[in-house]
Design a protein around this nucleic acid. Structure first.
Lengths: 342, 342
DNA sequence: TCATGGGTTGTAAGCGCTTACAAGTTGCTT
DNA sequence: AAGCAACTTGTAAGCGCTTACAACCCATGA
């Protein structure tokens, strides 16, 4: 299965320019100690022949592939695709490509996908969150592969990260509701198993509630996968309780969208009868009806900083163990005072 | 810069198993004509040594890298990230990775990004739309690279595609509005230069309007980039006209979201005072207030079919020149009868 | 029993580049 | 004028795998 017919090789360029292959390679790689004259001659030959270097040969010989791998739970959530979008744009500046893999929040799949990326020869890896199979660490270390985690704020020297705190913002959301007079707060969360971000957010909600001298009874905590339909269903569950909550804290915006929808359908007016919060601040959040109170996650900034930092580590710099970005509370109209007759 | 310390090589496995390197390679590649006994022996050695083949060496020797490239305008639009998400999931089944590149609707950047991907050695390529620089075609052909376009319906044997018609659905939207009694239709479109989908949609709008014996005056056509803010601004422009439209056809959902937002801000009730349509049917479309009338673009299905088809072409099958998927009209509450006192 | 042929395995030549090392230049300094 | 350092350039040995080709094995049929 010969794929292409006699492409021009580096050797042809060398011949054409009347220099050695090493010199051509040096020009190609902007190596130091190349005379202006030689460089020009080689560049002319390259143009002349329309030479395009072979990435695979380059990768094998130089032991770097010119691409990093990104492992994300899913691209279906716009918050992750926003991050990936910025990441890719920024990598391009550094002449680096992006290989992506998704794992649907399944850590075994994540490990498997990482194996594949590593085998593929990626020069670096970005991971989401702090929860991973131990083998992930082992693999990364054995290969001396630069890597970064994100989306969390764990101060763990073993896992350098560029992320944000999930707990404090969650605490602020809950606090905000409590200040509005809500007693019966409910939470819709994603499964926390293998998802430290969801766990951290839940923990934040709990902290604020505990600080107010209350607690979060189990029946007020609904666990579902992220999704609009799931959010809507969780709403039904919660509002079907004997004493329905007066406020619902959602693990992310998507769940909150589902709640808003279901509330609208059920004729529950927001925030008059029920307050709702999200987490992420998707572009649509401010256009919901009512506009959603949520936490603005710095997805694009993470993408950019991850790109720059990973490129630096590939270049040999040791990255800072941890860089924290802001995830501010965005107050909008989906939250309001507790209904009087509740 | 030695990256790793003495990894196990295929040769080590061969030694351990007491077979030739060729046999190990055959086992690795599930080649035919390998006895059960030899296979077992090699697999045992592989497990024993924890051997992981080197993707770059494999790529160089076999002339295939095990990854395809996807060129999309942006991942910021959830409709594209949905497609990419499905594409990646499906490729994984075929043991194929995904390299992505974005080009912000700039066809020169697209060409440049393609060059990079090709140089990288991708085994196949997916493109969005029918508009591309001529060099794209040349490059693809000279390298005999399997490729596919999508998101359009052009019957062009030179550009095999898995997509959908943009014109007819647009026509249906406009027709729907005309049937509701609207005379003054306005359009918000993305720049049509280098964007055949936007052009096709605009054409569909025009066709329906012309079929009704009317026309679309220039001042009723606003061209902006895709974006919520842009949609909102276009709304201002249109509603500031002497005779504002009674209905606005948006080039995609994101623009429509912007219009809905701006309308809400301006106290223009929809659909009572103004009808609005989108295009894409993003998950949020049905949760807008009011839920958005739009066209459901089969993004996930495109992802899956592109994966399967491209894998097949890499395997040597010639793909069908064209496969069309449905993009149905989804009637919701953002469109209604023309306001009486208009 | 021996030729025949199909299945199995090994040998070794690349795949197209990078880079350590050596060799050759040039321009100073002494 | 010789010696030396610093810079350029060339030589050639890989990088770790795949695969064409040859060699071999063994069951089959004449």
């Amino acid at each position: 299965m010969s794929k292409q017919i006699s492409r021009t090789l580096l050797q042809d360029v060398a011949l054409e320019a009347g220099v050695s292959t090493a010199s051509v390679s040096r020009v190609l790689n902007r190596a130091p100690h190349v005379s202006e004259r030689l460089r020009r001659r080689v560049e002319a030959a390259i143009d002349q022949l329309g030479y395009v270097p072979d990435g695979t040969a380059r990768a094998l010989a130089s032991r770097r592939i010119g691409a990093i791998g990104a492992l994300v739970p899913t691209l279906d959530n716009p918050i992750f695709s926003a991050m990936i979008d910025s990441l890719e744009q920024r990598l391009k500046r550094h002449d680096c490509r992006l290989l992506i893999a998704t794992y649907r929040y399944d850590l075994d799949d994540e490990l498997q996908a990482l194996r594949t990326l590593v085998q593929q020869g990626v020069d670096g890896v970005v991971l989401i969150g702090h929860d991973h199979r131990p083998a992930v660490k082992t693999l990364l270390e054995r290969r001396h592969l630069p890597f970064l985690t994100s989306w969390h704020a764990k101060d763990d020297p073993k896992w350098p990260c560029i992320g944000f705190d999930n707990t404090a913002p969650a605490r602020h959301l809950a606090h905000h509701l409590l200040m509005l007079g809500h007693h019966r707060l409910a939470v819709i969360t994603a499964p926390t198993d293998g998802n430290d971000r969801a766990r951290a957010r839940l923990e934040g909600f709990r902290q604020a509630i505990a600080a107010a001298g209350r607690d979060l009874p189990p029946e007020y905590t609904v666990t579902v996968n992220y999704g609009i339909a799931e959010g809507a269903q969780a709403f039904e569950t919660l509002m079907g309780l004997e004493e329905p909550p007066t406020a619902i804290l959602c693990g992310n915006d998507t769940l909150a969208f589902g709640v808003l929808l279901a509330a609208q359908r059920a004729g529950v007016s927001i925030p008059e009868e029920l307050s709702v919060t999200g987490f992420d601040d998707l572009p649509q959040a401010r256009f919901m009806s009512p506009p959603l109170t949520t936490i603005a996650v710095p997805a694009n900034e993470i993408g950019r900083q991850v790109a720059d930092t990973l490129i630096a580590s590939i270049g040999g710099n040791t990255p800072p163990h941890r860089r924290l970005l802001d995830a501010p509370l965005v107050l909008r109209q989906s939250t309001g005072p507790v209904p009087p007759a509740s």
